[in-house]
Design a binder for these strands. Structure first.
Lengths: 254, 254
DNA sequence: CGCAAAGTTGATTAGGATCAAACTCAGTGG
DNA sequence: CCACTGAGTTTGATCCTAATCAACTTTGCG
């Protein structure tokens, strides 16, 4: 277990301003516009914080939970970023997903009550612990909330489908373009630019996520910088023409 | 639209015996042991058929719904098999999933109310139409059912994760071995042998599902027959040593 | 019987994996 | 303050898997 530490090279994506007082945790959360819990709190005035069982800071490189850990609460990212690391059937480790503010984590563990992957922070981050028991209880009495929660789960399912689609895509170029675009989309959802952002994961993580190797990612980036209207220097990404990237994905349809 | 037709080469996996009378649809269903609806009916004696809005036959090669169709009901497979065909971002078509008796279809469409893929029958099949409205209503009043439904969704999420893991697996051999084993598992769940079964999909479907080509699948099968304790002739599969297949997946763990 | 879909086989090629080595840079400790 | 250290990244050379193109066989169905 790592202990909490200050890391200078990465600032949290967004720190809740300290000026608000007497407001619920959700109301000062940077993720309130995209978070399940936040959506709900805007809709119903009563104590939404009963869902929030607590909050937890996770230092960069530290893990919030591991494969096989008991699921006691779901987690919603308040700020920062995470990666999930799955053990594939041949025992290798693969980055399965990246999570940002507002993302809900642990839905796949509901089935058997245990987590299926390890969750590691890419930067200093904070999560809300959401009591699953409280969620199911609230679903029974608040149809609106039930609808939303099911939509969130359904969306997670769709996202996984999409990831499969990206992986099954033959060309590495296409996979990477897809990754850049959807990462931009995620930042946009949070109110940032979708064409200018920082990658918080390593090249190795990207390679693992895309089903390829570090070396290939490195060459890929060099080639993208040379041939396409993008600039990727270190972890800083500039997409000068998102339409171009999107269109060179859509080549043929058999 | 294709019309209903008799197809001689493929028999339905299992036809409910006609001897039962005065029983609910679920009680004579071949999928009752694995179906959400069936599970529920065993648990609570009251009218479970309110969930079942109807039944629908789908002829081989016919489609039950297409990408963009409105989601009105979820579907549970009674007998037969289906494949889902997704349009990936470059416009190509990919087989995303195979469904068998008891599988619940359409969960990913809850989020936006529209289906994300086309669903086509691999053989003459039959599905139950499950009213989503009735499901959500029942969830609110029956905690046990709520728990089960959420578990089913969570499981679907996990399955998608697994599919991603298979796709990200480098070697084609491993991907294929994985496919054979998990197909066997699915048959086993339904009470059949997990080492002796028929594939109801074409080589092309398999290739698409595994992210490769028809030719590669063909060569793959030839090589498997020669090198491994399996026999795959036409669509008939015999796995003489499942442990062997499983173990050659687990080679190294870095 | 004949055509279309499904499946097999062969030859060639290209895209990445792999192995190897050097370089960059942030965090650590003398 | 600077050198050491190790993780992260880049670059080069080689090899191999699977895509591609093409021809052919088999199967199934009207």
């Amino acid at each position: 277990m790592q202990t909490m530490q200050i890391v200078r090279d990465t600032k949290p994506l967004s720190v809740p301003p300290a000026t608000h007082q007497g407001l619920s945790a959700c109301e000062i959360c940077s993720a309130q516009n995209v978070c399940l819990s936040g959506l709900f709190s805007k809709m119903e005035a009563d104590g939404n914080d009963s869902l929030v069982a607590g909050r937890r800071r996770v230092a960069r490189h530290a893990s919030l939970f591991r494969e096989g850990d008991l699921l006691d609460t779901l987690f919603a990212v308040r700020f920062g970023q995470f990666k999930s690391i799955r053990r594939d059937s041949s025992g290798g480790l693969r980055v399965a997903q990246f999570y940002m503010s507002g993302d809900l984590i642990g839905l796949d563990a509901i089935a058997n009550g245990r987590h299926n992957f390890r969750l590691t922070a890419l930067e200093n981050s904070e999560v809300c612990e959401l009591s699953y028991a409280a969620i199911t209880k609230k679903m029974a009495t608040h149809p609106q909330f039930q609808r939303q929660f099911l939509q969130v789960m359904s969306n997670a399912l769709k996202d996984e489908h999409d990831h499969s689609a990206v992986l099954s895509r033959s060309s590495l170029d296409e996979r990477f373009a897809c990754f850049l675009l959807s990462t931009g989309d995620k930042y946009e959802r949070l109110g940032y630019s979708n064409k200018s952002f920082r990658l918080s994961m390593t090249r190795g993580d990207i390679g693992s996520y895309l089903g390829t190797t570090v070396e290939s990612v490195s060459r890929l980036i060099a080639r993208f910088n040379a041939q396409y209207p993008v600039s990727i220097v270190g972890r800083t990404v500039q997409l000068y023409d998102r339409k171009f990237l999107a269109s060179f994905l859509a080549r043929e349809q058999p």
